[in-house]
């Protein structure tokens, strides 16, 4: 099969459980999923259904208890911690609900963070940062610190940081969860544009049906299992 036709994300029989005291909590049970290149997938479900856990597994932020996590043909669940860190730096962009910007760094320096791990020169890093901030429409706020930016602007900085190293996969954990409707819409429009114009594959966890409507596919997760239908 042509590589471009293979799914970018493939989960096979994935299980994830946590130990809480003497109790074993099963969050994901025998879960399988395929996400094609260029897809914009929305993951919905009630709190505690395992959406963020699933996103963490796909992003290599956590490891499954069992099963295979394959991204672009690579079994990331089999990588060492060091290899996984390098893999994240190259292939994944992460967008968080609370932006997760470093308060002591200005917008430009926050966006530059993933590039510090590359061999790019200072000038090349600056150029990448400039382009990323331009894409999210924040060229005029490069020297501003997070505390001086609005929620929407902070999320744009977060998105610029996620795309600055040109990853194939964008993982967004409730990117509009902390924003008002209008600002949230702007962020969703930006994500849609990244998906449509730059071909980024996006997996977005959300509680908001309005947000999921922007995706090309929506999956519902309940008690660690998928369904295509919205649960009652």
């Amino acid at each position: 099969m042509d590589v471009s036709q293979q799914p970018l994300v493939r989960l096979e029989g994935v299980e994830k459980s946590f130990q809480r005291g003497s109790e074993q909590i099963h969050v994901l049970a025998n879960l399988s999923l395929q996400v094609g290149r260029g897809e914009f997938l929305a993951l919905m479900g009630p709190s505690g259904s395992g959406k963020s856990t699933l996103l963490n597994l796909v992003g290599g932020l956590d490891r499954p208890t069992a099963g295979a996590v394959e991204i672009d043909g690579e079994r990331i669940d089999q990588l060492s911690e060091r290899q996984l860190a390098a893999w994240r730096a190259r292939h994944v962009g992460l967008v968080f609900q609370f932006y997760n910007l470093l308060p002591m760094l200005n917008a430009e320096r926050n966006v530059e963070l993933p590039l510090l791990l590359t061999h790019l020169s200072r000038g090349e890093r600056r150029e990448h940062v400039r382009v990323a901030l331009e894409v999210v429409g924040l060229s005029h706020r490069t020297r501003h610190y997070p505390r001086t930016l609005s929620g929407g602007e902070q999320q744009r900085v977060g998105i610029a940081r996620a795309i600055v190293n040109d990853p194939t996969l964008l993982l967004c954990d409730e990117p509009t969860g902390d924003l008002d409707r209008k600002t949230g819409d702007e962020i969703l429009t930006l994500l849609q544009a990244l998906n449509r114009d730059q071909g980024k594959t996006i997996i977005m966890v959300t509680h908001d049906p309005h947000a999921s409507a922007r995706a090309t596919r929506t999956l519902y997760l309940e008690k660690g299992q998928f369904s295509t239908e919205k649960p009652e």
Binding site: L61, R82, R88, A89, N100, L113, L117
Partner: peptide, 15 residues
């Protein structure tokens, strides 16, 4: 803690 988690998330190694 959250900031260190973020650094690791974007690819900073444990070392």
């Amino acid at each position: 803690t959250e900031e260190l988690g973020l650094l690791k998330a974007v690819g900073f190694t444990n070392g």
